[in-house]
């Protein structure tokens, strides 16, 4: 029987032959982010609707920002960050996916490509698709999905878990990053 951790967030969004490794412990995710030279956190438009220990996912993303991770908001979410006093990059999700597959892209700050892209807060199926595009057409790019449901097309994904456990895990990742800052 399939592990509950590998249950996808939507019924039919199943994995192909190459599927994401499940992040075994929050500190493993934190460690990967800390080791990355140019990590990028992509925050999707559902973030304000996802409650976290910080308030919502936007608030948690602001902690990532303060911990030194570059943040880009998709959809029109950058306004929410701005309203909360945080300046983040803004790029439409499809456009961002298209740029990320290009190893020669100069990045949002002009300093070059990213070596690790972390996803939270996008509609599940859109994240699934963008990561499918990256899995197939940007094979050297490592991706991490930090949502509370398994994303099979990422390189690494949180396993599906109850919301309570996920909130704790997200908090642990952030604390690790903040401590290592």
């Amino acid at each position: 029987m399939m592990s509950a951790k590998l249950r996808t967030g939507q019924t039919a969004e199943i994995a192909g032959p190459k599927k994401a490794n499940v992040i075994p412990q929050p500190k493993v995710a934190a460690s990967m982010i800390k080791r990355a030279t140019r990590p990028l956190l992509v925050v999707g438009s559902d973030a304000p609707n996802v409650a976290t220990n910080d308030g919502d996912l936007v608030d948690s993303a602001i902690r990532f920002l303060k911990a030194g991770v570059t943040v880009v908001a998709t959809g029109h979410l950058s306004k929410t960050f701005k309203d909360r006093g945080a300046e983040v990059y803004s790029m439409q999700f499809m456009n961002l996916g298209d740029r990320l597959r290009d190893p020669d892209w100069s990045g949002l700050d002009g300093a070059g490509a990213y070596d690790l892209v972390i996803f939270v807060g996008a509609p599940y199926y859109m994240e699934w698709l963008v990561q499918s595009g990256l899995k197939n057409f940007a094979q050297d790019l490592r991706t991490i999905s930090l949502g509370n449901n398994y994303q099979p097309n990422a390189s690494w994904s949180m396993g599906s878990m109850p919301m309570k456990n996920w909130l704790t895990a997200l908090d642990e990742i952030l604390k690790e990053l903040e401590e290592g800052k």
């Binding site: 192909g16 032959p17 298209d98 499918s132 595009g133 197939n136 057409f137």
Partner: peptide, 24 residues
Amino acid sequence: KPFYMPFCDLCCLCTFGKCDLTGD
């Protein structure tokens, strides 16, 4: 330029397959 986001990593349209087309 097309930015492809495969819905399925396989091709199952002929009896050679299923073929795994992931990546390269």
